[in-house]
């Protein structure tokens, strides 16, 4: 801890209170969202899940539409072969030597490793204790493949919750990122996502996770003469493969 520098929290907060001319305690006029019972948040989340599964088709269509507007290359795969084939062809086109991927269930549905290895690429699993990692530096990879935790139709966004098996940088270091999306992960809007993540925190607190990333298309900058350059510090190319069969 840092000792003896800064203002003690009680003192700092008391001075804010004084500036406001307020007494200690919760807001006099409560904010509905903040006094909502947990049970009611849970009910809303359940209703959301029902709505999402009823509207899945429409949400996936919208996701595909918006994501491509936001700079993703979107591919709707009709089956396992189609999905694997897409990534295979991409790797071939890019002359990929090194692939990094995370450890997630989705790679059970879409087994990519053999196909990529047959191209002569090495596939590294970015997880602790993985033997294949060895002296490998993920910064040298030319393709990163991940699953997602949610995909938001409203904004064309892939949401990733890094954790065991899911590194923060698999989707950041390589110049090309492929995200595999299951239709069941599709949300309609930002409100759905934040409601579900809020509930996760209310339930699990610190165990709800340390990080959440929204990725919407490639990295970009317009800091010189407002001229758009695609590909800044993150990937310059992002592919969203929607696993468009009963997942």
């Amino acid at each position: 801890m840092i000792e003896g520098v800064g203002t003690p929290s009680e003192q700092f907060i008391a001075s804010v209170r004084e500036a406001l001319g307020r007494k200690a305690g919760p807001p006099e006029r409560p904010y509905a969202r903040m006094v909502e019972e947990r049970a009611s948040v849970e009910e809303r989340a359940e209703a959301t899940m029902e709505r999402l599964s009823a509207n899945r088709r429409a949400n996936v269509d919208e996701l595909a539409r918006v994501a491509s507007l936001r700079g993703w290359v979107v591919h709707r795969a009709e089956g396992v072969e189609d999905a694997v084939g897409y990534v295979y062809q991409l790797a071939q086109k890019l002359e990929t030597r090194r692939v990094v991927r995370s450890v997630e269930d989705v790679f059970g549905d879409v087994p990519l490793d053999d196909a990529l290895t047959s191209l002569g690429a090495t596939v590294h699993v970015m997880a602790r204790g993985d033997e294949s990692a060895g002296s490998f530096d993920p910064a040298d990879a030319d393709l990163g493949v991940t699953g997602v935790d949610y995909a938001i139709a409203e904004t064309g966004t892939a949401v990733i919750l890094p954790r065991r098996g899911v590194s923060r940088v698999t989707s950041l270091l390589p110049p090309v990122h492929v995200a595999l999306v299951k239709p069941s992960q599709t949300l309609e809007g930002l409100d759905d996502l934040y409601l579900l993540r809020r509930l996760a925190y209310l339930r699990d607190g610190v165990d709800a996770g340390s990080y959440m990333n929204f990725i919407t298309g490639p990295s970009r900058t317009a800091d010189i003469e407002q001229t758009l350059v695609i590909g800044a510090h993150g990937p310059r190319e992002t592919h969203m493969v929607i696993l468009d069969w009963g997942l």
């Binding site: 966004t157 890094p162 954790r163 923060r168 940088v169 165990d207 990080y211 929204f214």
Partner: peptide, 24 residues
């Protein structure tokens, strides 16, 4: 700000990495 519908990245940090996390 820029007329974008959303920026490329929205990053949410909840404290340090958890012991089981890969990085952070």
């Amino acid at each position: 700000a820029t007329g974008q519908r959303i920026s490329s990245y929205v990053t949410h940090v909840y404290g340090p990495k958890r012991p089981e996390d890969e990085d952070g």
